[in-house]
Amino acid sequence: MNLPISVTQGQYVLTISGVAVILLGLLILSTVIVIMQKRKARTFQTQETSLQHTSALLHYVIEHSRYAIAVHDTELRYLYVSKKYCEEYHIPDGNAIIGKHHYEVIPNLPEKWKIVHQRCLHGEIVTGDDDVYIHEDGSVDYTRWECRPWYRENGQIGGIIVYTELLTQQKQMASELKEAHDYLDALLMESNSPILVWDSSYVITRTNHSISSLLGLPIHEIVGKNVGTIFFSLGERELDRLENRLETEHSLSNVEIHLKTIEGEIRTILWNAGPIFDPVDGSLVATIAQGLDITERNAIEQQNKEQLEELRRWYEVMSHREGRVIELKQEVNALLKEKGQIARYASVEQESDT
């Protein structure tokens, strides 16, 4: 069957098979359009899911960062913030400030920070080290910070990121550490006892005026030398024995070592030494030794010993002498008795009777 169609150009005849082809083409076209739309929808959904995941991941990473981080848009509204940032700026709830203006959350911000924000929004990266931040209550914090812009896909600035590190506690600890170091250094340097500090290679790293005066050498000529050069009078064998003891016990207790002064005088020093270990890995860092000059004490002890020996000898002599005198007196009394005379030494007679 033929279906006539009138057009301005003339008469055309459309067959049933022709209609079927047209309908099939339209069906295929519509199917392709539907498939493309579904694929586009799935792609859009995948992209949206991926974007949501990326945003959630970024939020997670920033929130749990060990550093104080805040991400703002171009209007300085909060987009992301780390817990550390909230702790350092005393913000109770980080989620509550999302979307709020930075100057609303932290009012009375110094003018220099506002200038930094504007510079950063124009593409600059601005940093500060050991920067002083004075709070409203007059307390002072020291910070290290960096402010840099972040960019959208089209290359335009989307806002700024502020990294902040609070240094106040570190500075306080450093100040206390320096104060303790200066105190210990003064204590070491001004001590009346000779002090030596050597590392694990037995190289002297610290000493004091006492041993400097004892040896007649300036401190800089002692530091850097092997401890064996100070204890040279021990001899090679004794030095090896001392080193072996330090290797195994890492300490000395009441060890007498002779030191030779620049004038050639031999001084006897009683040494006690203890190890200093690394608190992290337990390795030996240094050994600190303190000495006591017992030269005079030993001399006095020697004098006392000699005097005691002398007294002992005299006592023995006198004891024997006294016994001999008694014997002689007894002999005289005996002779007098034989002659019928009275004993001359009555005390001797009394002692013999008892």
Rank of each mutant, 00 (worst) to 15 (best):
R42A: 04
I257Y: 02
V71T: 05
G94D: 02
A334N: 12
K40Q: 13
Y163K: 09
A343M: 13
V105S: 06
E104I: 03
N108S: 09
R245W: 06
V19G: 14
E349M: 07
E136G: 05
H59S: 14
M1E: 03
K40S: 12
I326W: 07
V7Q: 09
L3P: 01
H250C: 06
Y345F: 15
D130G: 06
T261N: 08
H220R: 02
N154I: 08
N333G: 00
G159I: 00
N192F: 10
V227Y: 01
T74Q: 07
K100H: 07
L215K: 01
M173D: 15
Q303W: 09
L24K: 07
L270D: 09
G228P: 00
H258M: 14
P4G: 02
V197R: 10
N333H: 05
A20V: 12
G340V: 13
Q9Y: 06
S82L: 02
H250S: 04
K38L: 14
D199G: 13
Y202P: 04
T207S: 05
V19C: 03
H53W: 06
L76V: 03
H122C: 14
E48H: 09
P275N: 08
L196K: 05
L177S: 13
E256T: 02
H90V: 06
H117I: 01
Y60A: 03
Q341H: 15
K114M: 11
D281Q: 12
L76P: 04
Q303K: 09
E236M: 00
G128H: 04
D93V: 04
N254I: 00
K260M: 07
L27M: 13
E327N: 15
E338Y: 13
E111H: 06
K178N: 12
T248I: 06
L284I: 15
G18W: 08
N192M: 11
N298D: 05
E327C: 05
H209T: 03
I276S: 10
H72T: 08
D281M: 12
P149Y: 10
S191M: 13
D137M: 12
L51M: 14
P149L: 02
A299E: 14
S283P: 05
Y89T: 11
L215Q: 06
T46P: 03
G158R: 00
H258W: 07
W314V: 03
L51Y: 07
L167G: 11
A180L: 15
R77S: 04
D278G: 14
E249G: 03
Y67Q: 04
M173A: 04
N244T: 01
N254P: 00
I115H: 05
K40M: 12
L79P: 01
T268F: 09
Y315A: 01
L215I: 07
I33G: 06
F44Q: 14
E306N: 06
E322Y: 12
G235V: 01
I125C: 11
S175I: 09
V285I: 14
S191L: 12
I257P: 03
E301C: 00
Q170S: 15
G159V: 03
L166S: 13
G340W: 05
N108Q: 08
